[in-house]
Each structure stands twice: as structure tokens, then as C-alpha cells.
């Protein structure tokens, strides 16, 4: 049996001195797809941010192990280099660097080597085609003036190019129309197929899950996972909501 690439043990975390995660446990193996669902304010996004090393979140107790290294309290760039990636709900606009140059910088930071420009452009073009992105976006400043949907696609583009071991999709489908959700799902499927990457999908809707094979579903309520099951749990939540899990 494959070993865990991510092990979260009894994790407590605060933001602005407020306790959000209260003893969370989660194990992810290579290539697995985990869905985290839960009501607003349950701590879903906090989980993503803590795993990715956001310094605004403080780990009070417990540990996070990723790729056999203890990454509790580690800097985001170190965690990224180990192979974790998170898509942002609101990707930041950074004028002065193009999307293409940014991805290349990130790629080189991660691999520690240079990639030839021709080879890079070819890969980028192929990835943009999967996402049905206008190639012109490669030369536009990172996220500047992108619509909500374009920003989300640009996040998935980075996922496809950086090929992490584990990708956390934080509400990637929120605010997208049906077509955009389908395209984003195709991108995510391409990532799975190409690198057999693991996924943690944080969502409160289920549209993005329709075209993905989900291995596990977790219900997160009040900072803890209160129920874990297979993909059938998605359908159940769809039907009944979270009422049964909120005390």
C-alpha cells in the first residue's frame, strides 16, 4: 500500500487569535482526490492556507508532514518547492511581470534549473489550449485586468505547468459559469492524468466534482472533520445539506 504524502495530525490553528482549526486529522496518498465540504466559516480555507504556509495563520498544536518532511510552520516557498500548490480564491494582481515570465520564474525556482525558452513556450501553449485560453494572456501582466474566470484559469494553468505532487483547489469553481467550470475540470483532469497528482478540493458546491473521480469526501464543521466517506457522501450532502452535522 502506498504511503501518505500528506499527514495532518491533531491540527489546531488560529487566525487573529481566533481558534479556527480544532484538532483536524487528514491523510492523503499519491494520486488521491479528497473533497472537503462544509458550511461557511467551518475552517475550509483556513486548512488550505495553513497547509500552504500562510504566515497570517498560526499553528498552535499538532503537525503537518508532507513528502516525508515536517512542514509545520515552514515558509510557503519551501513547501511549494516540496511539491504543494494551492489555487487562490482571489489571485493577486501583479503588474510588471507577464503571466508567462512569472510561470517560468516559478518553474525555475521550483526545479532549481533553467528551462529553455523555446521548450517552455511550447509547453505553455499546449497547457493554454487545454484551458481554452487566449494565447495573448501569456504576455499580459499577471492577473492584471483578468476577469474572475480568467484568473481561475490562470491558476489552473500554473497547476498544469508546475506539476505539484499535491494541489489544493480553494473554491476554484466559485463564481464561474457552467462552461468555465467544465474547462477548469478538464484542466484538473489533465493534471491528474499527466502527473498522477493528489488533490484536495475545497468547495461548497458540487459542480466541479461531476467530472472528477472522487476518492474521499470529508465534512468539515467547526474546525474538525466530522465525517469521512467515499464519493457517495457528495450526493448525500447535495440532497440534505450540512444540517445533520451541525450540532
Amino acid at each position: 500500500m502506498a504511503s501518505n504524502i500528506l499527514e495532518v495530525k491533531n491540527l489546531y490553528a488560529n487566525v487573529d487569535d481566533k481558534e479556527i482549526l480544532k484538532g483536524l486529522n487528514l491523510n492523503v496518498k499519491k494520486g488521491e482526490v479528497h473533497v472537503i465540504m462544509g458550511p461557511n466559516g467551518a475552517g475550509k480555507s483556513t486548512l488550505g492556507n495553513v497547509l500552504m504556509g500562510n504566515p497570517n495563520y498560526e499553528v498552535k498544536k499538532g503537525s503537518v508532514k508532507f513528502m516525508d518532511e515536517d512542514i509545520t510552520g515552514e515558509d510557503a516557498d519551501k513547501i511549494a518547492k516540496l511539491g504543494m500548490f494551492m489555487t487562490f480564491q482571489n489571485p493577486i494582481e501583479v503588474p510588471g511581470i507577464t503571466l508567462s515570465n512569472f510561470i517560468r520564474s516559478a518553474y525555475q525556482a521550483k526545479t532549481g534549473g533553467r528551462i529553455r525558452i523555446f521548450e517552455f513556450k511550447k509547453k505553455l501553449k499546449a497547457a493554454m489550449e487545454i484551458l481554452n485560453m487566449d494565447p495573448e494572456y501569456a504576455d499580459r501582466d499577471l492577473n492584471v485586468g483578468f476577469s474572475g474566470g480568467e484568473k481561475k484559469k490562470a491558476e489552473i494553468l500554473q497547476l498544469l505547468m508546475l506539476k505539484p505532487e499535491l494541489a489544493i483547489l480553494d473554491e476554484t469553481d466559485s463564481g464561474l459559469d457552467v462552461d468555465a467550470v467544465r474547462i477548469v475540470s478538464e484542466g484538473v483532469n489533465a493534471f491528474k492524468k499527466e502527473v498522477d497528482g493528489a488533490l484536495i478540493i475545497i468547495t461548497h458546491s458540487t459542480r466541479i466534482l461531476e467530472s472528477l473521480d472522487v476518492d474521499y469526501t470529508h465534512i468539515l464543521v467547526n474546525g474538525k472533520i466530522v465525517k469521512s466517506a467515499g464519493s457517495e457522501l457528495v450526493a448525500e450532502v447535495n440532497e440534505n445539506g450540512f444540517e445533520a452535522y451541525i450540532k
Binding site: 516557498d77 489571485p91 501583479v94 510588471g96 521550483k110 501582466d141
Partner: peptide, 20 residues
């Protein structure tokens, strides 16, 4: 944090933001 989450060091991230 956004830029660091893509593997850039803190200094590189800040330099990029200042250039922008």
C-alpha cells in the same frame, strides 16, 4: 504569500511586487 506559494523566496516576491 501568493508569490511565495509558487516557490519564490520572500525577497524575490517583494522585489517582484516593488518592480510592479
Amino acid at each position: 504569500f501568493y508569490l511565495m506559494s509558487r516557490g519564490l523566496s520572500e525577497e524575490e516576491a517583494k522585489a517582484l511586487i516593488v518592480s510592479g
